[in-house]
């Protein structure tokens, strides 16, 4: 599939994309041009295939696709893995913008600095259960790391 087609996954029944049972390639392409430039996917060519993009650009492509769907909640799992620094800052800003627009964002990441920088609330899971909740301002990477090993409570005691 082309990037233009890839970008409508989940929206394939949207009225605006074509009359009746049809999809209008021109509308797909126009939509793709807008999203590719907005999310700075390079090269911004709707006719390319996702496999031809670098890993970071693939991540931005997915972000563009999922954040453009107008969902009320976003589950972002490792959204910046393999992404270069400039794109990381961009994706972080987009996720915060989602939050500011009133949408729920559940961020899952192995980058604790990312979690501390973006989150309003941090929850730590250990063996399938929430073992810790904190405000980013009231915790740090060391404390979170301890809770992740299940030893946070013991350490405090």
């Amino acid at each position: 599939m082309t990037l233009a087609e890839n970008l409508i996954l989940g929206l394939q029944h949207m009225r605006a994309l074509g009359p009746g049972p049809f999809l209008d390639p021109a509308k797909l392409e126009a939509r793709a041009r807008g999203l590719l430039s907005e999310f700075d996917v390079r090269p911004a060519e709707p006719a390319y295939r996702a496999a031809q993009l670098s890993g970071g650009n693939q991540q931005k492509l997915i972000a563009a696709r999922e954040l453009s769907r107008g969902a009320r909640a976003v589950l972002a799992a490792h959204p910046t893995r393999g992404v270069d620094l400039g794109a990381i800052a961009f994706l972080h800003a987009r996720l915060l913008a989602e939050r500011d627009a009133g949408r729920g964002v559940l961020l899952v990441s192995s980058e604790l600095s990312e979690i501390l920088a973006l989150s309003d609330r941090v929850l730590v899971l250990y063996e399938g259960r929430v073992v810790h909740e904190a405000r980013p301002a009231a915790t740090d990477e060391r404390a979170l790391g301890l809770h992740m090993t299940g030893r946070g409570a013991a350490e405090r005691a």
Binding site: M1, E5, I8, L9, G10, Q12, H13, G18, P21, F22, L23, P25
Partner: peptide
């Protein structure tokens, strides 16, 4: 295959069924 919503879903299933399912197919 290349101009309809059904064809799009059909190709999506063929390329990656779990991803298609995530896309509401």
């Amino acid at each position: 295959l290349f101009r309809t919503r059904l064809g799009y879903e059909l190709r999506a299933v063929g390329l990656n069924a779990p991803a298609a399912a995530c896309g509401g197919v």
